[in-house]
Design a protein around this nucleic acid. Structure first.
Length: 202
DNA sequence: ATGACGATTTACT
DNA sequence: GTAAATCGTCATA
């Protein structure tokens, strides 16, 4: 996608990313890709659930302030990574959290990255990218991939959707996992495709 | 320097 | 449904 298409408000970009394809070329030259089926918007100073709440600006969340189209990958819970795409103009603290993908290319590699179930059987395809940390693990994304310009990077980018999903399939909901304090907790800032079996939580 | 916590996932009861 | 895993980040001192 172009800089221009990322340089919009986060509430506009988040639903527009539904149907677009995240592409990742690994160091081994494998092409991994998935169709985005679930996103969440995170805003700036006023958003109590945002890493940029109260204008917080640190080395970690600096990509949120970068030009729209910059990757923001962070490490959490001592073991997981989550990937965001910044939106808006430079200085705007906004980002879209990618919460789930429908895997389309490189499924075998994704399975290898994600590992088998404890009983040794392979995980179902719907368990490869159905969560923000799952999709990062499946695509091999970690903090080394933060702060990248997705409009020019040779290894990580988003291909625009050819057609928008039908309106009736887009579900708007409250964000997941952001605690229970503040009015922003109940704000409808999550979007997903209701027909997709690859969404994180129903 | 220290302590509390997290935009989660997984396995187990 | 409940709980453990596991450590970087950030606020406080």
């Amino acid at each position: 996608m172009t800089r221009r298409s990322y340089a919009v408000d986060v509430m506009t970009l988040a639903p527009r990313l539904l149907g677009a394809t995240l592409v990742r070329l690994t160091d081994e030259g494998e092409r991994l890709a998935g169709r985005i089926v679930e996103t969440e918007a995170y805003g700036g100073a006023e958003d109590t659930a945002s890493h940029a709440h109260k204008g917080r600006r640190t080395a970690r969340n600096e990509p949120m302030y970068a030009a729209g189209g910059t990757s923001y990958v962070y490490f959490t819970y001592g073991m997981h990574h989550c990937m965001n795409v910044s939106s808006g103009k430079p200085g705007d603290a906004q980002a879209v959290l990618l919460r789930a993908l429908e895997p389309t290319e490189g499924l075998e590699v994704m399975h290898a990255h994600r590992g088998a179930r404890k009983d040794g059987r392979p995980k179902p395809d719907t368990d490869l990218c159905s969560g923000p940390a799952k999709l990062c693990q499946a695509l091999g994304l970690d903090r080394s991939m933060t702060g990248l310009d997705l409009t020019t990077h040779p290894r990580l980018w988003i291909e625009p959707r050819l057609r928008a999903p039908i309106e009736a399939d887009i579900v708007t909901a409250v964000r997941v996992g952001i605690g229970s304090a503040g009015a922003w907790v109940s704000a409808p800032m999550r979007w997903y495709l209701g027909s997709s079996p690859h969404v994180s939580v129903r």
